[in-house]
Nucleic acid binder design. Structure first.
Lengths: 193, 193
DNA sequence: ACCTGAACACCGTTCAAGT
DNA sequence: ACCTGAACACCGTTCAAGT
């Protein structure tokens, strides 16, 4: 018998559902996207969703995982650019996924699964950003706090877009320890009290 | 005829509805609070809400206005304290209203009324905070950006609580231009490129 | 002006039944 | 294992009707 008959159709259907949800969540938002509509776009009945997922929130988590994965690979490929440019890339990249930020925060309060995803997300970004700051020459005791400030401001900028120069200034302020070393003013011997 | 017969009962009932919603939103969150439940707690039928408000989102805005008003008066009374202490007070103050932040962001996307409130809210806090920073001796071209950074981090800290020292460090980083003038290091002649 | 009972369209989810 | 039709409990909102 032909071996190239795709051994796992199940995972394909599951993927179709996630893809449908991804598009709909982006275009209509989580609340305005009904499970029935996702099912429709995936060529299936509403209740079939519940064979693949425990509920709408689990579909959300699947979409989030997918989005995060592709965003992270994209981010990896920017290794050459200065940190501030990479951060601005993240902003542009996530701009049309921005609705997800607010949705995750709102649903995390109601769904343990989303809450778990949210925690893991912040653990990941905190780790990455702290590493970035250290390589950029940040002084140690405040690195974790500085990383969190950056994450929070980026999250907020997604739902509260500013004009380009304001956005740039905001990020620069958060990166007083610069990533480009061709800079005159330094005050690295300033000690915390 | 007795003049002390309370000329406006209407406003009282309206206030009862807002009060009921305020408590329920705080305890259950916006999504889990049904209009029927608000009505119940205000001693009225669900559809009666729609005589006083155009919809659930307008009830939310009424609650937000009330919360913001009392928060602002509380904030005014802290005139003596250094800025960073006032900011920490805001954090503690809004901690159990924190669900409102995420709800406002989620609903602003769907309801023009909530969106309008949200815009006006940020205009207000931006103005207040920028003034604070100027009095604290911040250098001009970045004041607006610095103010926004602070607002965004405080908003985020409400849904992402950190331990006390992390929180303190985060706020301190955002206030490098100190609010207490007994400070040695200054670099006010740094120019933007 | 103020409030209700009854209905509407829709929602996420469940379940027994089909293949 | 995979999918459906039909139902469930609930939701925000509307409306004609009462006082």
């Amino acid at each position: 018998m032909p071996r190239n008959r795709r051994p796992r159709d199940a995972d394909e259907k599951r993927e179709e559902i996630v893809a449908a949800a991804q598009t709909l969540f982006r275009d209509l938002g989580y609340d305005k996207t009904s499970v029935a509509r996702i099912a429709d776009n995936a060529g299936v009945t509403a209740n079939t969703i519940y064979w693949y997922f425990k509920g709408k929130d689990e579909v959300l988590v699947a979409v989030l995982d997918k989005d995060l994965a592709t965003a992270l690979t994209g981010y990896e490929e920017l290794k050459g650019l200065p940190l501030i440019e990479r951060l601005r890339w993240v902003l542009r990249r996530l701009r049309d996924t921005r609705m997800l930020v607010d949705t995750v925060h709102a649903r995390a309060r109601l769904s343990p699964t989303v809450a778990a995803w949210h925690d893991q997300f912040h653990a990941t970004t905190d780790r990455i950003l702290a590493d970035e700051l250290r390589t950029a020459g940040a002084i140690e005791p405040t690195v974790a706090a500085a990383a969190k400030n950056i994450t929070f401001v980026i999250e907020a900028l997604l739902s509260h877009p500013q004009d380009d120069t304001t956005e740039l200034t905001m990020l620069e302020l958060l990166l007083q320890f610069r990533d480009t070393p061709d800079d005159e003013v330094r005050h690295s011997d300033r000690q915390p009290h």
